[in-house]
């Protein structure tokens, strides 16, 4: 089944006449629409890992500071470095989403 047939069926299913719907959507439109949803998926799912990972680092730092408060400066510094590294995949997602939106579409 090719894409035009599929779109016709979808459009008929949601109550439009098939002719106008099939002629209204071009390949360029589909490509742009795919880019929009793709950028959303890229940033949305890409943000899950760094968020959990950085929270984990922060949690461990809180526990460690509770146990040895005299090393608070060192522990906070280590936490921030670890979080910065685990942030990197979130930044990759941001960069790829922006590339999709501004360069590739």
């Amino acid at each position: 089944m090719d894409l035009t047939t599929l779109m016709t069926i979808v459009e008929a299913g949601v109550g439009q006449t098939a002719d106008t719907a099939a002629s209204a959507i071009t390949g360029v439109d589909l490509r742009t629409a795919g880019a929009m949803i793709g950028a959303g998926i890229c940033m949305g799912f890409g943000a899950i890992g760094p968020g959990i990972g950085e929270g984990y680092a922060a949690g461990r730092a809180c526990e460690a500071i509770g146990r040895s408060p005299e090393n608070a400066g060192l522990l906070t510094r280590t936490m921030l470095i670890g979080q910065a590294v685990s942030e990197s995949t979130g930044i990759y997602s941001l960069v790829v989403a922006l590339l999709i939106l501004f360069v590739m579409r």
């Binding site: 929009m36 949803i37 989403a97």
Partner: peptide, 24 residues
């Protein structure tokens, strides 16, 4: 696609930070 993409980005993008802040 713009509206659905924006919803997916901010919606699923909030899962990790929410759980992460909870662990902290």
């Amino acid at each position: 696609a713009k509206a659905v993409g924006a919803g997916i980005a901010v919606g699923f993008g909030g899962i990790g930070p929410g759980i992460g802040s909870g662990i902290a």
